[in-house]
Design a protein around this nucleic acid. Structure first.
Length: 280
DNA sequence: AGTACGTCCTGATCGC
DNA sequence: TGCGATCAGGACGTAC
């Protein structure tokens, strides 16, 4: 379920744990299908000996630029946590956690551990990250994510707005939960055809996406500090209950569950009317 | 091109 | 109580 806030929090955890400056001394791939590019052998050889320069994020992707003896084409390690992925930096002496898929040994005796029960996480090692990230839309917490840009991306699209918010080419970083939360905050029904949204609604949706993600990042950041040296677990930094029948926190109407493109979608039938409506 | 659905995965939960 | 069926969903492939 990692979406932008969880991935951003993971990034900050890796920074705080001191990953930059460390050098990879060994790589163990426990599920070869996770490695998307290049071959598993090339991936392992490419990562080993690489010194971590930084930990960055783009959408739901974590970018780890490496330096290898000042070679001209320094590679970048890219990680995607999929649905159930998580990263930990642990001393090598610490018992292996369940569902460990990959291990990246570091030169100080610690280890970057990739946990991933469902095996939906992915790894890349590329010279140019743009090869992997080229289809991503705007970064929602950057200035580039404007209402005009969102309107442009939604123009001519008649699919349900909920479905389009899950497309990473529209906006990068939203998943099922924060898509619901953003629509709830904006007072927009998830089944509304995107092209039918007014300029005002799109502007409100853009603001709500930013609010939902910003609020969640702040909550995660605070709890990350409190939970150090482990990342926080089991936070629920959204306001729309993810359980049908629970009262809407704004109006008390029972929240409803529908399927949009096969995805569980929670919304308030009063605050998010199918025909659209101004939110107070 | 846009839209929708199946697929990969396995732990947790549901229903009989 | 036990066990098989179902659910969960990020990203991609395939089909219409």
């Amino acid at each position: 379920m990692p979406e932008l806030p969880e991935v951003e929090n993971t990034r900050r955890y890796l920074l705080q744990a001191g990953l930059p400056g460390r050098t990879f001394t060994d790589v163990q791939i426990g599920w070869v299908r996770s490695v998307k590019r290049p071959s598993v052998e090339e991936f392992v050889l490419g990562v080993m000996g690489g010194q971590v320069q930084d930990v960055q994020r783009r959408g739901k992707y974590i970018l780890v630029p490496l330096s290898k003896d000042g070679q001209p084409d320094d590679p970048t390690l890219i990680l995607h946590l999929g649905m159930t992925g998580g990263l930990r930096i642990h001393p090598r002496s610490r018992p292996l956690p369940p569902m460990l898929r990959h291990s990246f040994a570091l030169d100080d005796g610690s280890e970057l551990r990739f946990l991933d029960p469902r095996k939906f996480g992915h790894l890349w090692l590329v010279a140019d990250p743009r090869n992997v990230l080229s289809l991503l839309g705007p970064e929602p917490l950057d200035d580039e994510f404007t209402a005009e840009k969102l309107a442009q991306a939604l123009a001519g699209r008649n699919a349900p707005i909920k479905a389009l918010l899950l497309e990473q080419s529209i906006v990068a970083g939203l998943g099922n939960l924060y898509a619901d939360e953003s629509l709830y905050l904006a007072g927009i029904h998830p089944m509304r055809p995107a092209a039918g949204l007014s300029v005002g609604e799109i502007s409100r949706l853009r603001d709500s996406i930013i609010n939902a993600l910003t609020t969640a990042v702040a909550q995660y950041d605070q709890s990350r500090i409190e939970a150090w040296p482990e990342p926080p677990f089991a936070l629920s930094p959204w306001t729309i209950p993810r359980r049908s029948g629970e009262p809407c926190p704004r109006c008390g109407t029972p929240v409803e569950l529908i399927r949009v493109r096969g995805r569980s979608t929670y919304f308030c039938p009063q605050c998010q009317l199918p025909g659209g409506r101004l939110v107070p």
